[in-house]
Design a protein around this nucleic acid. Structure first.
Lengths: 233, 233
DNA sequence: GGTTGATATTTTGCATTCATTTTTTGAAAG
DNA sequence: CTTTCAAAAAATGAATGCAAAATATCAACC
């Protein structure tokens, strides 16, 4: 469970040097810490990953660090160049387009599966967050709106009841999380109304358990989100 | 580009000991070799991964091997237990259900995207393989049929023109590849006719560039495939 | 001033080593 | 014969060491 999706309005990541918390378990711990470190944008886009510096930062030797870097490369967060170390992966607009589409496909799937198995309780929660989001929309409270928006998408993925889906989704979300700020479509007021209407349709289809319809709507919703994001970039 | 999907009828993987080809580049090389080694079923399901033995098998020391194992764990092929090494990941029927659904979702996405951008040439190729597959079906040639089947699904994913989708799909396919033999629904003659009809519908929807429709059909197709597979297991 | 090329420095990739933890072994007890 | 427990053996996780490769430095030259 990493991060729901784009569309957050939170402030930029914390300053580079932190209180150097001494990595808890070091098993999973280092990996998580390092991933956060990168995802949170502590390293510039395309910058080379300073092995030695990170060793000191996390108080470990190069061996476990390099193992973690390999994993992060497999996750697509960084890339390894033979004999010249790791670089923070720079996403082209094409990469972002691809990522949005795949996430759209996964959300479409989540919607479809959710329709098959969502409980009344789960639906009620989504409905509640939806109404809350609507109130934020009326009040033009972007921060609140996007918080709810995130929550809804996350709840739909969770309602699908498919851990493989959830972790695949989280992996992709992690990759674009770095660019979420630049992709902050929130500024686009016209799109906002449209997005709100789309969310109405999402809730409606989910209420009717119309899986294939919801699937379409969710995919298109992500498509539109991406278009707005890339247009404003 | 790993492997299209289940549904192959190929014979079981080669015997455990091979000619010990000395890992080419060792950068990407070891990882690929080791992944193949595991995916091809050289290690029993749930068996512990013998670090030392693999070091000798691939003529490398433990450091690079362990890096590779970490990556394979991230890919979901093996799992790492703290202080007790790596095990070949054993997929529960629930895991398989999940994987099929996610792959179904990704194929649905691939179909949708393919409808947007597939060229006449690409479509013609799929159509051709489809007809070839039909001839195999009429002749009751399972091996030929499944080879074409695989090719069609792979061509649709390729026609989507989304590298992120393709690699995500390949990653999941790799996980499931180990169990493809047990999931060999080929034996189910009734399902075969049904599958053939579904493929007719797939081709038809693709011809009409009916993205959302194709999306539904593909997802259901994978669903049915999975049900047949799990029923016969 | 800018370019080229040789040398020094750093960094990478892998092997080796070491401390811990786990697993195995085997003998004693029930 | 089975269970229990302690010691031995093996495996894991991580640090260090070392050769090869890449990068940086800097002086000579145009």
């Amino acid at each position: 469970m990493n991060e729901p999706f784009l569309d957050t309005i939170d402030e930029q990541s914390p300053p580079l040097a932190e209180a150097a918390k001494p990595v808890a378990s070091l098993h999973e711990g280092l990996l998580v810490a390092l991933r956060d470190f990168i995802v949170e944008g502590n390293l510039a886009d395309g910058a080379r990953v300073p092995e030695r510096a990170l060793c000191e930062r996390f108080n470990i030797s190069r061996t476990p660090l390099r193992e973690a870097l390999k994993v992060l490369a497999a996750e697509g967060l960084i890339e390894l160049l033979p004999n010249r170390g790791a670089r923070v992966r720079q996403l082209s607009s094409e990469d972002i387009r691809e990522l949005f589409d795949v996430m759209g496909g996964l959300e479409a799937l989540a919607g479809r599966l959710a329709c098959e198995r969502i409980s009344e309780e789960e639906f009620a929660e989504i409905e509640q967050v939806h109404h809350e989001m609507y109130r934020f929309y009326l009040r033009r409270d972007m921060h609140g709106y996007f918080h709810c928006n995130q929550a809804i998408h996350q709840l739909i993925v969770a309602a699908a009841g498919n851990a493989t889906l959830a972790s695949t989704y989280a992996g992709l979300a992690g990759r674009i999380r770095r660019v979420r700020y630049s992709a902050n479509l929130a500024k686009d007021r016209d799109r906002w109304g449209e997005a709100m209407r789309e969310h109405e349709a999402i809730l409606d289809a989910l209420r009717r358990r119309a899986g294939s319809e919801l699937s379409d709507i969710l995919f298109q919703h992500l498509r539109n989100k991406r278009k707005a994001a890339q247009a404003s970039a």
